[in-house]
Design a protein around this nucleic acid. Sequence first.
RNA 1: GUUCUAGUCU
Length: 260
Amino acid sequence: VYVQTAVIKMYSELGLVDEARQVFDKMTERDLVAWNSMVVGYASNGHMGAAIELFSSMPVKDVLSYNIILSGFADGKRIESARRVFDEMPDRDVISWNSMILACTNAGDMAGACELFEKAPERNIITWNTMITGYVQNELYAEAINLFDRMKTENVEADYLTVTASLSACAHLRSLETGTQIDEYARNRGLLSKPHVVTALIDMYAKCGGIKNSLEVFYKFRHKDIFCWNAIVSGLALHGHGDSALKLFDEMQENCLKPD
RNA sequence: GUUCUAGUCU
């Protein structure tokens, strides 16, 4: 059963939902994990109709089963459907709250997200990150920074995604000062080993008029991937250094061995 | 063995 469940997961991750279903149908014993995995297969590939159908026929459901469906609706920006699941589920954990918040931010409803955030009985780093990235995605950059500041006053440790989103907000605001502070914050926590953070830093400095800092961050970083390269190339182009940008672009072709 | 946030440019 463990092996078959792992195979269902593998097929699902490759988008091979029908293959996954064949394995599921052939199982002689299906426990809750197997059912949940198959629902994930449908939900994470956007097949919410099939996901709901299978979900409805489950002999037993747990919080995960509901969370999977909720998350599927959140990804599909179906806020009304998500809300219905959220309201009807017998128990909610922090993941349920996070998914419901995500459903709001994905649908552009930051007011709704904010209300849930305040009401949540428990928050983890993902709750905070979902809100901050939600603000950034909805172009409410100052709100994103405010929430990052609030994390600090509430002594919640930011992680690399918090910093990434906050730097992106600074880049959009052209706020070099705040961006530099976040740079320092990230350095102190060793977050500059993360390509996400490095990319966001390069981009922030480039957009805030500190292309030299961008280059410094870029050259010091050992594990450059395609995103870092793109950030530095477009940063240089933005500053009218089309020549250097093109030079680096050529270098990129030679050095980029492990794209994502 | 199963569920939540994911960086650049577009």
